[in-house]
Structures are given as C-alpha cells and as structure tokens.
Simulated scan of single mutants.
Amino acid sequence: MLKERRLYQILLSVSTLPLFDLRMLLIIPLIAYSGLQQAFVWAEYTKYIAEPALGESGVGGAMAVYWAFDAICSLAMGRLTSGLKSITLIVCAGAFIQLIVLLWLLLKYSVTSGVLGILYPLLMAAALGIGDGIFNTQLNALLGMLFKHDMEGAFAQLKVWQCVSIAVVFFVSPYISLHAMLVVMLVAVCISVGGFLFLILMVEKAFSCAD
C-alpha cells in the first residue's frame, strides 16, 4: 500500500510539475482550443451544418472528408516542422484557416440548395480537418522541443486539457446556440494564438540572450 501511494504521488507530481512553468501556462490555451475545435466538429458542425445541408446520410461523408484532410495535413506538416519558426508559421496558418471558417459561419453562411449547398459543408470539413492536423502535429513538436527533460508531464498536460475542453463542449452543447458557440470559439482562438506568440517571443529572446 505504501509503495502504491508513493508511486501515485510521484506520478501526480510529474504530471502537475509543468503547471509551474510559464511556458506551459502560455501553451495551455492553445491546447484547450485544439480540444475545443475537435468537439465543435463532432457536436456542433455535424448537428447544425452537415446534417441540415447533406442529410443524416451525408454526415458520414462530411466526417470522412474531415478525417482525410486531417490525416493528410498531419503527415505533410510533420515533414515541414523543423524548428520554432516553422512551428510559428504553421500554427498561425492553421489558426487563420479556422478563423475564416468560424467567421464565415457566424456572419454569412446559410444552408442553400444545389451543388453549392453540398460543396460548402465539405469545404468547411476540409478546412477544419486541416486546422486539426496542424494543431495536433505542432503541439506535439512544440512540447517535445520545450520540455525535453519533462516530456511525460508535458504530454500529460496535453491530454488533460484537450479532454477537459472536449468534455466542456459536450456538456454545454445542449444549452447554448450555434451563434454563442462560434463567439466562444473566436475568442478562444484569439487568446490561444496570442499566448502562443508571446511564448515564441519569450523563448526566442531567451535563446538570443544565451548566445
């Protein structure tokens, strides 16, 4: 029993130690947003965008497009990642793509008939899949780069905050409108990218001082 308790204490300290690091605190909003946008696709996009436009039978096709672009983007972005500068550019590109989709849904999109009525939801699925592939690969690369001496704790935080944000979306989804969720997403992506850029500036400044 004492050994099990000691092991539990060690695991707890390892997983919570990165929370005392400013770098992790600046990454957490982006981690949380990555989970938030995944849950948005599963809970909101399928309900309010894909099903009304494509029908219940078309939701599976839309999600197939989402996962296809997610996988392709993950492979491509993984090969393009070479350092902090590449991570910064790729993350900003992914955030910009998702920002465009969110603004489109918030300000202009409406369900239409015909070819465009089918094409628009599939384009959104592809763009959201690209964003998810970018965030997944770049967050893993960034954590591996910044927390070489505590990778277990850093990746534990990745899963914890992603799962928390996913759970929150599924819990509140029945009680808020699509418009409110889109506003939350827009605020979240702005805060997360702001924190990420501040982190990059801080790390680059530390590297330049060390040189």
Score class of each variant (00 low, 15 high):
Gln157Leu: 15
Leu182His: 00
Ile134Gly: 00
Ile176Met: 14
Gln157Glu: 12
Ala167Trp: 09
Ala141Asn: 11
Met151Glu: 03
Phe170Val: 13
Ala167His: 10
Phe171Asn: 00
Ile166Pro: 03
Gln138Cys: 11
Trp161Cys: 05
Leu139Ile: 08
Phe155Gln: 02
Asp132Gln: 06
Met185Ser: 14
Val189Gln: 00
Ile134Gln: 02
Val187Pro: 06
Ala188Gln: 07
Leu182Glu: 04
Ala180Pro: 02
Ala188Ser: 06
Leu139Gly: 08
Val169Ile: 10
Leu142Ser: 11
Phe171Met: 11
Val189Ile: 10
Asp132Trp: 05
Lys148Ala: 07
Val164Met: 09
Phe155Ile: 06
Val169Trp: 00
Ala141Thr: 06
Lys148Thr: 14
Met145Ile: 01
Gln162Pro: 07
Asp132Lys: 13
Phe171Arg: 05
Met181Gly: 11
Leu139Trp: 13
Ser165Val: 04
Val183Asp: 12
Gly144Lys: 12
Ile134Glu: 02
Ser165Asn: 12
Ser177Asp: 15
Phe170Tyr: 14
Leu186Gly: 14
Met151Phe: 05
Phe171Asp: 01
Ala154Arg: 06
Ile134Ser: 00
Val164His: 13
Trp161Pro: 09
Val164Leu: 14
Ser165Gly: 04
Leu158Met: 09
His179Arg: 13
Met185Leu: 08
Lys148Asp: 11
Ile134Met: 02
Leu158His: 02
Leu182Thr: 00
Gln138His: 01
Leu146Lys: 04
Ala154Asn: 04
Val160Tyr: 13
Met145Tyr: 06
Thr137Pro: 00
Gly133Lys: 01
Gln138Met: 12
Gly133Cys: 08
Ala141Ser: 13
Ile176Leu: 08
Val184Asn: 04
Gln162Leu: 15
Leu186Phe: 04
His179Ala: 12
Val189Ala: 08
Lys148Ser: 15
Lys148Leu: 01
Val183Ala: 11
Leu182Gly: 04
Val160Cys: 15
Ser165Ala: 13
Met181Tyr: 04
Ser165Glu: 07
Gln138Phe: 11
His149Thr: 08
Tyr175Ser: 11
Val189Leu: 08
Leu146Val: 00
Asn136Cys: 00
Ser192Asn: 10
Ala167Thr: 12
Leu139Cys: 00
Leu139Gln: 09
His179Lys: 14
Val160Lys: 10
Val183Thr: 09
Ile166Arg: 09
Ala188Tyr: 07
Phe147Tyr: 04
Leu182Ala: 07
Val187Gly: 15
Val168Glu: 07
Pro174Asp: 02
Thr137Met: 13
Ser192Pro: 14
Ala188Leu: 01
Val189Ser: 08
Ser192Tyr: 06
Pro174Lys: 04
Val193Asp: 06
Val189Arg: 03
Ile176Val: 09
Ala188Asn: 03
Val169Arg: 00
Val189Met: 04
Pro174Gln: 06
Leu146Met: 00
Ser173Phe: 01
Lys159Phe: 15
Trp161Gln: 10
Lys148Cys: 07
Leu139Pro: 01
Glu152Ser: 14
